[in-house]
Simulated assay, not measured.
Amino acid sequence: MEKPRQLPLELSHGTGYSRDDLITSPANEEAVALIDRWPDWPSPVVVFAGPPGCGKTHLASIWREETGAVQFNGASIGSGAAKLGAGPVLIDNIDAAPVDEAGLFHLINAVRGAGTQLLITARRFPAAWGITLPDLESRLKAAATVEIHEPDDLLLTGVVTKLFADRQIEVEPHVVQYIVRRIERSLSTAIHVVDRLDRKAMELKTRITRALAAETISALDEGQWDFDI
């Protein structure tokens, strides 16, 4: 049997972070517009906040590719801040671990002094990061914060359609709509559902039908398979 193919898109593999892979909808259009406006930003520091699977990392990766930004780890910012040049900086998923508050404070000052920009992505708004350093709290209040909402039907439909197209799989529109209406509002879930459907269809040597989609989504709902993002 042919070895199941791995999906080279989003979250785990860089090839899924290209501008060609980006689909815009009301859920993310404000953030996309800000990426397109760079470097004409309303503040040197911009925060993209939104739930897991909403596409923050995808947008951040596009911005990094287009700007040549240097990426820092949010838990150890101080170790890299001293090496900051005159270019932009990215910190992805900063609230996944306790924030290096002193490092972030000095980094923001350095970014402002260099006349460049800092893009931060997070699940929550800065007020929920548990910041205790008053000067850093003040700096973050001056940042421009953009909310990225959970994917709407338009975005999920576009993503699922493109995922199948990238695999050269023809799926009827009504099957795509069935998937979109029944999965979690998450791009990562959409990716893994398509991946599982592709594998299952290859194993059974069949087309991807509504029945196969129903079986796959039911297995997901019942916790019969897991994925880690």
Rank of each mutant, 00 (worst) to 15 (best):
N73M: 11
E147S: 13
E137I: 05
G130W: 10
S61C: 03
V171D: 15
A96Y: 08
A49F: 09
G74E: 12
I217G: 12
S76G: 08
Q224W: 11
I108E: 09
I217E: 14
I169F: 00
R185T: 07
Q177V: 02
P126C: 07
T161M: 08
W38E: 00
G85S: 03
L119Y: 04
D228I: 11
K200N: 11
K205T: 01
A60V: 06
A97F: 08
P52Q: 07
T161H: 07
D166S: 04
M1S: 11
F164D: 14
L204R: 15
D198E: 13
L156R: 07
W225H: 07
T15R: 12
A142Y: 00
W225V: 04
F164Q: 14
I108A: 10
N93C: 08
R185A: 13
N109A: 05
I148G: 05
V180A: 12
I120E: 06
F227M: 10
G55K: 06
Q177E: 15
G158A: 10
G115A: 03
E30V: 02
P8Y: 09
A213K: 09
L187F: 04
T24E: 07
E66Q: 07
I91R: 15
G115P: 03
A102F: 13
M1F: 04
I108R: 10
V89K: 01
E65M: 02
T24V: 14
A96D: 13
S18N: 00
T132W: 02
E222T: 02
D226F: 05
L163M: 02
T145P: 00
H174I: 09
P126K: 06
P88V: 04
H192N: 11
L119V: 11
G85L: 02
Q6I: 14
V89L: 03
I208T: 01
K141P: 00
L155Y: 11
K205I: 00
L204Y: 10
G80A: 12
T121E: 07
R207K: 15
I183N: 10
D166G: 12
D92E: 11
A165I: 05
G74P: 12
A96M: 13
G50R: 06
I208W: 00
T24F: 00
I23A: 12
L118H: 01
V89G: 04
Q71N: 08
L187T: 03
Q117S: 07
P4A: 03
H106T: 09
T57E: 04
E65F: 00
F72G: 10
P98R: 07
S12K: 13
D20E: 15
